[in-house]
Amino acid sequence: MAGIAQEPVPSPPRGRLVRAILKDGSEPDPRFTLANERTFLAWIRTSLALLAGGLALEAFAADLFPDVIRLSATVALLSCASLLATLAGFRWLKIERALRWKRPLPLSLMAPLLACIGAFGSLSLLTVLILEAWKV
């Protein structure tokens, strides 16, 4: 037959670790699983961007900010990167379980949290820059 046909194929056996993490429920649509995986990766890339920002701030902005401010911003960025990567892992798991159990998806607290952190960090650095310029 021409065209695309779907033929059922028996699922391969799951590993012990996967069965322990994702027990019960039914297999979700693979497209949803892959979409969940891509969302997780997007959060991980955001975390890596924060990590790169922290590293770049420490490496290349020695003359731009006072040492205390630079170190504080670097620590804040690296902490946020770590927190975001951890939360992304938990969120991936929660969504995967919700998909398996056909439950509503959990509310994401990461987006508003990240927005608040970003706004607060940007405003703080902007204030420091303005104060530095005011002194000069």
Binding site: P30, R31, L34, A35, E37, R38, L41, A42, I44, R45, L48, A49, L51, A52, L55, A56, A59
Partner: peptide
């Protein structure tokens, strides 16, 4: 779907390479 997911993994890999460079 798999293509988009693989591309997403690749973008993550590129980000990791950037971290390694930094």
């Amino acid at each position: 779907q798999p293509e988009r997911t693989v591309l997403s993994w690749n973008r993550t890999g590129v980000s990791l390479l950037l971290i390694a460079l930094l």
